[in-house]
Simulated scan of single mutants.
Amino acid sequence: MSDGGPRGTPPPRTPAARRRALGLDRGAWFLLVPALLPILVLSVGPLLYAVALSFTDARFGRTVETDFTGAANFADLRLDPLFWESFRLGLVWSLSVTALQLLLGLGLALLLDQNLRFGWLARTLALVPWAMPEVVVGLMWRLVYHQDAGILNETLRRLGVLGPDSGNIDWLTDLSLALPAVVLVGVWAGMPLTTVVLLAGLQNVPRELAEAAHLDGAGVWRRFASVTWPALRPVALSITALNLIWNLNSFGLVYVLTQGGPGGKTRLPSLFVYEEAFTYGQFGYAAAMGVVLTAVVAVCLTVFLRKSLRETAP
């Protein structure tokens, strides 16, 4: 006979058991301190400070007084066309880069999943762009896009796309080409991570189901839509949501390539916040921009977590 309560309920804890459990909980929290402390100091602390700063008129200068202004910064931000144009460019950038990373990364992952000769070498080379720092990637692609000495213009000229009498294309200062050129670099730099994650997801696709579908006469596309994609969808959703968040926060790559030019055509929101704070010294207004962007990222993260939990729920 059980000495506990009704069937399915655990027996009540004795005072000694509760003390032991509390001791274990305290020990677990003590072990978590080294991991939580850097997060509190480097992430939560600056975030709370930025929120507080967004309600002031803080400006650059040691002797400048800072006053509480309430929601004045957010009211000004609502009517700032430059910020909303930057926000629109940020959405175009992040959605374009994220979509292309998924499509091209999926294609490359499917290719690398085959029994290719020197497949290990191809997988290693696919990681090279991701292993390079953003500053290095930006400097390298600035050389590629260089108007006079860039390899891209020289290649187009050798292929006959550029005639002998036509001038070279200045990719990063042309108003219509700067954003697509930067998007291409963002896709190149971020696609390897997407490829590796999707390639890992492909390893969990049941091979016997694909073989059975092949024996039933299903074509390549039918096997992908009915077998591969349903098993890969949770992984694809996760990496796509994370890529979207990272791309919304992108700064270093675009700053090295164009510094937001030409004419603000590549001024992403993070670059606009940086300029407002460190070029014009409007720290309070820049903090309000950062709070708005953080709220947008938080909404994206919430949607991602809810979708992920729904996908993994039994």
Rank of each mutant, 00 (worst) to 15 (best):
W171S: 02
L172K: 05
T173R: 11
S176Y: 12
L177H: 03
L177Y: 03
A178P: 10
L179N: 04
L179C: 07
A181C: 05
V183I: 15
L184V: 14
V185N: 01
V187W: 00
V187I: 15
V187D: 04
W188N: 09
A189I: 02
G190C: 03
M191K: 04
M191W: 05
P192S: 06
P192V: 04
T194F: 04
V197S: 02
A200S: 15
A200P: 09
A200K: 08
G201Q: 00
G201R: 02
Q203N: 11
P206K: 04
P206F: 10
R207F: 01
E208I: 03
A210N: 12
A210L: 14
A212H: 05
A213V: 03
L215G: 09
D216R: 09
G219T: 13
G219N: 12
G219L: 13
V220G: 14
W221D: 06
R222C: 06
F224Q: 10
A225W: 12
S226W: 10
S226K: 08
S226A: 15
W229A: 09
R233W: 11
V235S: 08
V235G: 02
A236D: 05
L237C: 07
A241R: 02
S250Q: 15
F251S: 10
G260E: 06
G261V: 03
T266I: 08
L271V: 12
E275A: 12
E276C: 05
A277S: 12
T279W: 07
Y280W: 11
G281M: 10
F283D: 08
G284A: 14
